[in-house]
């Protein structure tokens, strides 16, 4: 039962880097919010300010209405899982998990019971006596998770916890963490730079760029209705074409898309799955390459000026490399000066 409130928080490091810039965010009880953004966008810094490892230059942080901005990390009801797992290699698994409970002065029997319970929850029952270096990367990250969970924190913080694991393991751990989080109903802030991770785990996604929030919303909203070209390009695959709107139509290298917007420069955004192709000679674009994934195919297209686009085709075998096609966007968004000025969603 905990609400995290971040109010107008900024962090300017010595040397002048503005890592987080006047950012506000509220994470409601039991919610899992993903901070998503490219490397250097300030995700870790924001998370570390919530954990107490960095002090905000400006702004306040609240947990359940209590101002924790100036509290030491050891006093905060937060628990952090680090990317590098940061386990204590001179202690075995049991001692790593038990350390926090021992600091709280719990009786030994209770500590044992709690530690064994949480180890079982993360799938490491019976691993207590192992040393850290005797574990695989995935197991190490599970211990780090257990170490945080055993303290029953109000807020769970995870900083790219699976970044160093392989794809398969990452997907599995992702599901497990999501399951545990929902079972315990623990308010969670999760940092990632992988859009898959954010889309599959989050209740809400915060897209970050240069220390600011670019968009906050549910995964489907962020995916379907990106508010800026940055979000459009960062989440999922997106064709972004810069061009000019003249006399009611967007033009670029042979494409013409009628649009009800004022004349001027514009960026056209179309998802590959919303871009249909019709065979035509010479056509607006040329098929460059076809990749068949079995269930669908990805067609790489080239405009006459060399611009590359992607289209998802259900029957890729109907096309040949080198042939001409006309482009029929079924859904598109138009941006001007990083703002959405037009959206057309047919389906």
């Amino acid at each position: 039962m905990a609400v995290l409130k971040i109010e107008n928080v900024s962090k300017i490091f010595q040397g002048g880097t503005t890592a987080v810039d006047d950012l506000s965010l509220e994470v409601s009880d039991g919610e899992l919010v993903c901070l998503l953004g490219p490397s250097g966008s300030g995700k870790s810094t924001l998370l570390r300010m919530v954990g107490g490892f960095e002090r905000p230059t400006q702004g306040k942080i609240f947990i359940d209405e209590a101002d924790i901005t100036d509290q030491w990390p050891e006093r905060r009801p937060t628990a952090m899982v680090f990317q590098s797992h940061a386990l204590w290699s001179h202690m075995n698994v049991f001692k790593n998990v038990a350390f926090g409970l021992r600091l709280r002065g719990l009786p030994a029997a209770e500590i044992r019971q709690n530690v064994e319970g949480v180890l079982e929850m993360v799938g490491l029952a019976g691993y207590g006596k192992r040393m850290i270096h005797q574990l695989s990367g995935g197991q190490q990250q599970r211990v780090a998770l257990a170490r945080s969970l055993v303290l029953e924190p109000k807020i769970l913080l995870l900083d790219e916890p699976f970044a160093s694991l392989d794809q398969h393991l990452r997907e599995r751990l992702r599901e497990e963490v999501r399951d545990i989080q929902q079972r315990l109903k623990i308010t969670t802030l999760f940092v990632t730079h992988g859009q898959d991770e954010a889309l599959s785990m989050a209740d809400r996604i915060v897209v970050m760029r240069d220390g600011r929030t670019e968009q906050i919303g549910r995964p489907d909203a962020v995916y379907r209705k990106p508010l800026t070209p940055f979000v459009a390009g960062f989440i999922g695959t997106m064709n972004l074409v810069e061009g000019q709107v003249m006399r009611g139509a967007f033009t670029r290298a042979g494409i013409r898309v009628p649009l009800p917007v004022a004349d001027g420069p514009a960026t056209l955004a179309v998802r590959p799955e919303a871009l249909d192709l019709i065979a035509a000679e010479p056509g607006q674009a040329q098929v460059h390459r076809i990749t068949d994934f079995g269930t669908h195919g990805i067609v790489d297209l080239e405009l006459s000026d060399g611009t590359r686009l992607k289209s998802m085709a259900t029957q890729p075998n109907a096309l040949r490399p080198g042939q001409g096609v006309d482009l029929v966007p079924r859904a598109l968004t138009v941006y001007r000066e990083s703002r959405e000025i037009y959206r057309d969603v047919h389906d």
């Binding site: 030491w72 050891e74 952090m80 590098s84 350390f99």
Partner: peptide, 15 residues
């Protein structure tokens, strides 16, 4: 020493 190890200890309540 990885500073994160020390931070992790602070995190679980060590001064």
């Amino acid at each position: 020493i990885d500073k994160r190890m020390e931070e992790a200890a602070r995190d679980v309540g060590a001064g």
